[in-house]
Amino acid sequence: MNARDEILGRVRGALAAAPDAEVEVPRRYARTADGVDVVRLFAERVGDYRATVRIVAPEALAPVVAAELRDAAVGTLAVPPDLPHEWLIETGVEVRADSPVLSVNELDGCDGVLTGCAVAIAETGTIVLDGGPTQGRRALTLVPDVHICVVPASVVVGTVPEAITRLDGTRPLTWVSGPSATSDIELNRIEGVHGPRRLVVIVVDRQTG
């Protein structure tokens, strides 16, 4: 018998005496964050991870991006092919679009990367990239040491269940909560290991003026 059939046979044998009824999942946990300003909460929670957070009005986005690039001393910036031009104005940095596809070494030669995101979760301070518009492929946001992520207020949700509902689980997803970190030395969190050591999150909110 092949391994597949044998394992499935063992599983069925093991469950032969188990009660037939389907196990119901009680879902009484919170699905939404009611009465919360999700944009402010998101910014606060991202900040808890020692990431840089800015909340800006749409017209202030480009200058803030430029300022953050200067602040992080980014000379070469990788961007997904479909990044809106208006996010990058008078930055003075060398911009490298991922089209044609940048090699790993070329990516490694970039100081930073600028993307958007698919969803952001207020409660956990998480941004989620799904490879959709303004995000590019997964390696793009991994190899450069500085990740600047533009988060439209419209993609900020309150909770993890809301994010799961919005996301497409068949896409390649990367959930990012702060810069790369480790707790492996005496269980204290320290930032900066293999992923980007600096994370800058810029929330674009019309309510801000």
Partner: peptide, 10 residues
């Protein structure tokens, strides 16, 4: 509240 990175692929 959340670990720094979660990856999913299919």
């Amino acid at each position: 509240r959340m670990n720094p990175y979660t990856s999913t692929w299919r």
